[in-house]
Design a protein around this nucleic acid. Structure first.
Length: 801
RNA sequence: GCCGGCGUGUCGGAAUGGCAGACGAGACAGACUCAAAAUCUGUUGUCCUUCGCGGGCGUGUGGGUUCAAGUCCCACCGCCGGCACCA
C-alpha cells in the first residue's frame, strides 16, 4: 500500500495535459461567467502565500462554474506602471520597461504554479502601448466631454529631495525617504470630474451584490448631503457671505458665523483693532501642515470685528475665523448654531458666544445646556413664525422656504473631490495633450495614439517638481496639430489608477487595434460576474472603475454601467501574531518551496483551510501537513476501493448525497474552509466503512474534489477508468430524499440540561418520542412536568417544577 | 469621537436559537522498528469523583429575553480595520 502519492509527477503530467486539452471551452452555446482577480503589480519581490489566497479562491470558483456548464472568462494581467518600478529602475540604473518585463516573467512563472485556469491568450499589461493607447483614448474622450480640466493644486513637496510625493510616501507629515518635513507646492494638475458622476455612483450602489462594508465606505467617501445655501449680508457693506448648512431649520439659532482662514473675504473683514490678530491667524493657518491642523482638537479662532445680518430675524451676529471650517467644502463659511452642533457649541463655550436653543424635546427651554442637542427631532422654539413646528419636518421644508424668501436656495453637497489625474513622474501613460500658445490645450490626434514614452537614460525627478519628461526636449517640443505653431507637450503622466480603471473591459478583446473593445464581444462576455481581491481597494480603485465604466456607457462603447456585479474581498494572510508579511519583517513565506515539498493541490487546500476566506488569517507552517495527509488518505481510499465492486447500499447512497449537499452548500456560501473540513470528515467516514465504498460514490467524491485539488482529482478520475477530463463532468445534485437518515439520536434535556440520548425513527411521532424520552430520564423527573418540547429530529426538553 | 468586524480549548478554527469545541495542528500514550522518521491506533476544555457510571463549571465582562443563548436584546471591556472638524 502506498503511503503517499507522487504529487510532483501527477501535477507535471496534468499541467501539460491541460495545456494541450483545455478544460474551459467556449463553444458558443455555454453561458458565460466572468470571474476576475484584481490584477497584480509585478513587484520584484515575487509572490508570497498571501497573494495565492485570492487566486486560489477565484480559481476554485471558476472551476466550479465550468462544471456547472459555463464558459468561464478567467484572465490575468499586469498593472505594471507606477512608482516602485520607477524607483527600482533609478536605483539599479535600468529602464523601467526592462525591469518590469523581468518581474512579469518571474511572477508569471510563480502564478502558473497555482494551476489556475487562466486564459493566457487574454493576458494584458498596462504598460504595453497596445493597451495604453486606449487609456489615452479614454482621456481624450473625457477631455472632449469637458470632464478633464487643468487646475492649480497643492501637491506634497519634499524640499530636501526636491520632488513631489505621493500620499503613501508621506509618513506623519514627513518624507518617507529623507525624513524632511513635507510642505505643499502649487502645481497645475489635470483633474477628472468624478463629481459629475457622484449621484449615479452613489445611487447605483443599490444594484450591486457587494459586501455592505464596501458599499458603506463608498457611500461615506462620496458623502452626499442635502441642505441649503443661505446668504448673509455683511453689516455695513455691500457683499454677502454665503454659507452651506444641512440644518436650515435652525436658522433662528445662528448666533455667529465662522469663515475658513482661506476664505476670500477673511482679510477684508478685519476691522481696526482686530487687523493684526486676524492677519497673524491667517498666516499661521497657511503655514500649518494638514497634519498639525487636524491634530489640534482644541478649537482656535479669532474675531474679525465685522458682523453679518441673520436674514431671517435681522439680528447682528459676529463673524469669526477658524480653521475648523474647511475652505474646500461647501462655501468655506458656516453659520453657527451652537445649541445644535457639537463643534459650534465647543467654539461658543470657549469664546463666550451666545447660545440660543431653537429645538426642544419637550417644548421648554433647557437651562444651561451642557452639550449641543444635535437631533433633528423636537419642537421649534425661539423661532418666530416657525415656533411649534416639528423640526424634522421643517428640516426638509426649510431649504424651500429660504428659497421663496429670496435669501437662499436648496443645495446638495458632496465630500468627494475631483480626481487629481496627473503625476510628475516618468513611468506612466503620457497625457496626450499639446499646449499651443495660440490654441491652448489641444489633443494629440487619435491616429497618433499611442503616444509612447521616450526612451532615455535619465528619468530622475527634475528638482523643480516637474515631470522628468519636461527635461527631454525631443519629447516636449512639437507642433500644434491644429495650427502648426511651435508647441509643447504635456509632460505629466497618468496615475497608476488609470490602467486599472478599465482593464477588465479589454481582456475579452486584447488584440483589437481599432477600438477599445468590440461592442459585440463586450455585450457577450461582460460585465464581470465575480470580482475577487483585497479590501484595500474598497474606495479608490473600485470607485474609479465604476466612474469610467459609466462614462464609457454614456459614450455607447459598452452597454452596461456597472463593471462588477459581485465582489468578494478575501482577508490577508499574515505572519505570526497578525504581522503583515514583508521582506523587512523577514516573515515572508514563499509558495514555491511548499509546492515543491507538498504539491500545488496541498497548498491550494491549505490556503482555503487556514480560515474563513473573508477574514485575515495567520499562516501556520505546520498546518499544511494536515491537508497533505488528507490528500494521501483520500488517494489511498479511492484506489483501495476501486477494485472492490461494492454494492451501493442505502448507507452509501445516503453518505454520497450528504457529501454532495455539504460540499455544494458550503461552496455556494463561500465557506471554503469548511468545504475542506467537510471532505476530511467524509473521507474519514469512508475509511471506517467495513464494507468499502461503491464506485459511484468514489466518482462523486473525486468530481466534488476537483475544483479544489484539480491534479489529484484528475489523476484519480483517470485511475477510475475515465478517458475524459473530470472537469467535463457535471456538478452533481444532491437527492434530499436519499440523504435522510432512518433513525436519529435525540438528546433529552430536563430543564435545559442534557440527561440522556435516545434513538428514534426519523419520522417518529411526537407522542412516541416524548414517551421514550420520559422513560430515558424517568429518575430525573422529580416534581410535576410543566412543559414538553420536541423539535423534530433535534431535541427534547422536559420542564419540571 | 463615529462607523464596521472580531473576541470560543495549547494553537488555527466548527456550530439555520436546539448535544459547544466539527475538522486540522500540537501534545501524550501505544503498535510497527535495532533505532528514528513516516505510518497506524487511542487520549486530549476544566474541576469534582468512591475511577463504575456520574456530576459541577465553561464561548471577553455584567445583566436580560427564552423551555433552550457562542448565537437574540441592553450596558461595558479589549483587539483589528475604515473615516475623522464635511457644517
Amino acid at each position: 500500500m502506498s503511503k503517499s502519492y507522487n504529487h510532483s509527477y501527477i501535477e507535471e503530467k496534468w499541467t501539460k495535459n491541460w495545456e494541450e486539452h483545455p478544460i474551459n471551452v467556449n463553444d458558443g452555446k455555454r453561458p458565460k461567467y466572468y470571474c476576475l482577480d484584481m490584477f497584480p503589480y509585478p513587484s520584484g519581490n515575487g509572490l508570497h502565500v498571501g497573494h495565492w489566497r485570492g487566486y486560489v479562491i477565484s480559481d476554485v470558483w471558476s472551476r466550479y462554474k465550468i462544471m456547472n456548464g459555463h464558459y468561464v472568462i478567467h484572465p490575468m494581467g499586469w498593472d505594471a506602471f507606477g512608482l516602485p518600478a520607477e524607483n527600482y529602475a533609478i536605483k539599479m540604473g535600468v529602464q523601467p520597461a526592462v525591469s518590469t518585463a523581468e518581474n512579469i516573467r518571474n511572477i508569471k512563472k510563480q502564478i502558473k504554479k497555482i494551476a489556475a485556469v487562466y486564459d493566457w491568450d487574454m493576458e494584458l499589461n498596462t504598460t504595453d502601448p497596445k493597451f495604453f493607447k486606449w487609456t489615452q483614448w479614454i482621456f481624450e474622450k473625457l477631455f472632449e466631454k469637458g470632464l478633464a480640466y487643468e487646475k492649480e493644486m497643492p501637491i506634497n513637496w519634499c524640499p530636501s529631495c526636491k520632488t513631489g510625493l505621493a500620499n503613501e510616501e508621506v509618513v506623519d507629515g514627513k518624507c518617507e525617504r529623507c525624513g524632511a518635513e513635507v510642505t505643499k507646492k502649487n502645481l497645475k494638475q489635470w483633474m477628472l470630474k468624478i463629481t459629475e458622476y457622484a449621484d449615479r455612483l452613489l445611487d447605483d450602489l443599490d444594484k450591486l451584490d457587494w459586501p455592505e462594508k464596501v458599499k458603506k465606505m463608498q457611500t461615506e467617501w462620496i458623502g452626499r448631503s442635502f441642505g441649503a445655501e443661505v446668504d448673509f449680508q455683511i453689516d455695513g457693506r455691500d457683499e454677502k457671505i454665503t454659507v452651506y448648512t444641512t440644518r436650515p431649520d435652525t436658522l433662528y439659532g445662528a448666533t455667529f458665523m465662522v469663515l475658513a482662514p482661506e476664505h476670500e473675504l477673511s482679510k477684508s473683514l478685519a476691522t481696526g483693532e482686530q487687523a493684526a490678530e486676524v492677519e497673524k491667524y491667517i498666516s499661521d493657518a497657511a503655514n500649518k501642515s494638514n497634519v498639525d491642523r487636524l491634530q489640534g482638537k482644541e478649537k482656535t479662532g479669532v474675531f474679525t470685528g465685522s458682523y453679518a445680518i441673520n436674514p431671517l430675524n435681522g439680528e447682528k451676529i459676529p463673524i469669526w475665523l477658524s480653521d475648523y471650517v474647511l475652505a474646500d467644502y461647501g462655501t468655506g463659511a458656516i453659520m453657527c448654531v451652537p445649541a445644535h452642533d457639537d463643534r459650534d457649541f465647543a467654539f461658543a463655550k470657549k469664546f463666550g458666544l451666545k447660545i440660543r436653543q431653537v429645538i426642544s424635546k419637550d417644548g421648554k427651554e433647557t437651562d444651561d445646556m451642557e452639550e449641543a442637542y444635535t437631533d433633528a427631532s423636537g419642537t421649534m422654539i425661539n423661532s418666530g413664525e416657525w415656533n411649534g413646528m416639528e423640526s424634522a419636518e421643517l428640516k426638509v421644508k426649510a431649504p424651500h422656504i429660504v428659497e421663496e424668501k429670496g435669501f437662499g436656495r436648496a443645495k446638495k453637497n458632496f465630500k468627494i473631490r475631483d480626481w487629481v489625474f496627473s503625476r510628475q513622474r516618468y513611468w506612466g501613460e503620457p497625457i496626450p495633450i499639446i499646449h499651443c500658445p495660440k490654441c491652448g490645450e489641444v489633443l494629440v490626434p487619435e491616429d497618433e495614439l499611442p503616444l509612447k514614452l521616450p526612451e532615455v537614460d535619465r528619468y530622475e525627478p527634475t528638482g523643480t517638481g516637474e515631470s522628468p519628461l519636461a527635461a527631454i526636449d525631443s519629447f516636449v517640443n512639437c507642433k500644434c496639430p491644429k495650427c502648426g505653431s511651435d508647441a509643447k507637450r504635456e509632460t505629466n503622466t497618468m496615475p497608476q489608477w488609470a490602467g486599472s480603471s478599465w482593464y477588465f473591459l479589454r481582456y475579452v478583446d486584447v488584440n483589437n487595434d481599432k477600438e477599445l473593445v468590440n461592442r459585440e464581444k463586450a455585450d457577450r462576455f461582460l460585465p464581470v460576474d465575480m470580482y475577487i481581491g483585497g479590501v484595500e481597494h474598497a474606495v479608490l480603485h473600485l470607485l474609479y472603475s465604476r466612474f469610467w465604466t459609466k462614462f464609457l456607457y454614456d459614450l455607447g462603447v459598452i452597454g452596461f454601467d456597472e463593471p462588477f456585479i459581485k465582489l468578494f474581498n478575501q482577508g490577508m494572510i499574515t505572519g505570526k501574531n497578525g504581522v503583515k508579511m514583508s521582506k523587512s519583517k523577514g516573515n515572508v513565506v514563499s509558495p514555491d518551496d511548499l509546492v515543491r515539498d507538498y504539491g500545488c493541490d496541498s497548498l491550494r487546500l491549505y490556503e482555503l483551510f487556514v480560515g474563513p476566506p473573508e477574514l485575515d488569517s495567520e499562516w501556520d507552517e505546520r498546518g499544511i501537513d494536515g491537508v497533505y495527509r488528507f490528500l494521501c488518505k483520500a488517494w489511498n481510499m479511492v484506489l483501495e476501493n476501486r477494485e472492490k465492486q461494492v454494492e451501493p447500499t442505502k448507507e452509501l447512497l445516503r453518505l454520497r448525497h450528504q457529501l454532495i449537499h455539504t460540499i455544494s452548500t458550503r461552496l455556494e456560501a463561500f465557506s471554503l474552509n469548511t468545504v475542506v473540513s467537510g471532505f476530511m470528515e467524509f473521507n474519514n467516514k469512508f475509511l471506517k466503512l467495513k464494507g468499502g465504498v461503491d464506485r459511484e460514490t468514489l466518482e462523486t467524491f473525486v468530481i466534488l474534489l476537483a475544483p479544489f485539488a484539480p491534479h489529484i482529482s484528475e489523476e484519480l478520475w483517470q485511475e477510475l477508468g475515465h478517458e475524459t477530463s473530470v472537469f467535463a463532468e457535471k456538478w452533481p445534485q444532491a437527492d434530499t430524499e436519499a440523504m435522510k437518515e432512518d433513525t436519529v439520536e435525540i438528546p433529552v434535556q430536563v430543564n435545559g440540561k442534557i440527561r440522556a440520548t435516545i434513538e428514534v425513527a426519523a419520522d417518529a411521532e411526537k407522542e412516541a418520542v416524548l414517551i421514550a424520552a420520559k422513560e430515558a430520564v424517568a429518575d430525573k423527573l422529580q416534581g410535576s412536568v410543566v412543559k414538553e418540547i420536541y423539535v423534530p429530529g433535534k431535541i427534547v426538553n422536559i420542564v419540571v417544577k
